[in-house]
Amino acid sequence: MSSTLVSPGQAQWSRWSTDMHLLVTRPAALAEARAVVDAELDAVEIAASRFRPDSEICALAAADGARTPVSPVLADLLEAALAAASLTDGDVDPTVGSALIALGYDRDIDQLDPAHPRVASVSIRSDWSMVEFDGRSVRLPAGVLLDLGATAKAVAADRGAKLVYERTGSGVLVNLGGDVATVGPTPEGGWRVLVQDTDDDPASHVVLGDGAGLATSSTCRRRWWRDGDIVHHIIDPRTGQSADPVWRSVSIAASNCLAANTISTAAIIRGRRAPDWVAALGVPARFVDRAGEVRIQGGWPQT
């Protein structure tokens, strides 16, 4: 998780079982900025929540293979998810919904008892190539359930920050549970951000400028018991199981939050191969391994 340290005007609240944090350089713009971000979160939720029976994602799952029109919001989210899948050679796959359910993640994480074992169920094997999307409608094979959790929150952070700047003219930082996006003028010295996944993890302080994205993917949050084992929410689509927790967390800085989140999620899935892959992409990265040892590369912007 990432949290900001500089707060010229700020709001904090909880949603989607995580902490939300909004900062603006013009405090007078805060109320309007919060309304803009809330509206964006509402739109993303009704489009892409697995836990709302009235969401578009659930409607697609019930379409039994029929081609279905989608809203502009879901179209943007699908485009982002499929781009992430392409960039990562399928490591970040939007069709892992049934695998998550099979692992027991069938309701909001706040409603799961992490100490109570879940019983495994059968997962329908699928991959992102099965998604037929033409920009306005989508067809999924019967039984395939989308899960856009790896990208939708990052898209919401990017879109929310952009909209706040366009509507108010204020510099803004949007932090949606560690998915961070900035747009517009910054406070003096930049946006200072604390990067720390859990309270007992090593911390890093970074400075972000205008048009920055930052994301942390974690194997230590969103965990629960299943068949006697602790599992987490980042799925290796090739196995349908939680990715091997080689890394406690991976943090990536990029030009937008979607790119940062895509790479950090894929890095968790790639495990020991991740540092070389991320280095080839040329983005700043911070890896925290099982033992809590930190590895930084690519010009990680720590202060």
Score class of each variant (00 low, 15 high):
135 G>I: 09
182 T>R: 06
203 A>S: 14
53 P>V: 12
159 R>T: 11
54 D>W: 00
301 P>D: 01
163 L>N: 07
111 Q>L: 12
43 A>S: 13
89 D>G: 13
108 D>V: 08
11 A>F: 11
184 G>E: 05
15 R>W: 08
18 T>P: 06
255 S>W: 12
246 V>N: 02
183 V>S: 10
205 H>E: 15
58 C>S: 13
219 T>P: 03
156 A>N: 09
32 E>C: 12
110 D>H: 05
229 D>K: 15
119 V>D: 07
69 P>W: 00
294 V>P: 02
296 I>S: 06
131 V>G: 09
17 S>T: 11
283 V>L: 00
240 G>V: 02
246 V>W: 04
62 A>E: 12
105 Y>I: 08
74 L>E: 01
72 P>K: 14
44 V>D: 00
6 V>T: 15
50 R>L: 11
163 L>A: 14
225 W>T: 06
270 R>Q: 08
149 G>N: 05
45 E>T: 13
76 D>M: 12
202 P>H: 12
90 G>L: 04
58 C>Q: 15
80 A>S: 15
172 V>S: 10
97 G>T: 08
252 I>P: 01
275 P>C: 13
88 T>I: 05
157 A>L: 01
116 H>D: 14
132 E>V: 13
133 F>L: 09
293 E>F: 12
235 I>P: 09
302 Q>M: 13
256 N>W: 10
66 A>I: 09
236 D>Y: 04
302 Q>N: 13
55 S>N: 06
279 A>N: 09
109 I>D: 14
47 A>I: 00
280 A>C: 08
282 G>D: 11
214 L>V: 02
132 E>G: 01
149 G>V: 02
158 D>Y: 05
79 E>W: 08
131 V>I: 11
143 G>W: 09
57 I>M: 04
65 G>V: 00
62 A>Q: 11
243 A>F: 06
244 D>F: 15
56 E>Q: 14
88 T>G: 06
200 D>L: 12
272 R>V: 14
115 A>W: 10
71 S>Y: 00
139 R>P: 01
186 T>A: 15
302 Q>L: 14
185 P>T: 04
127 D>H: 04
82 L>W: 06
221 R>Q: 10
58 C>H: 11
105 Y>G: 09
44 V>H: 06
181 A>K: 11
176 L>D: 09
296 I>G: 03
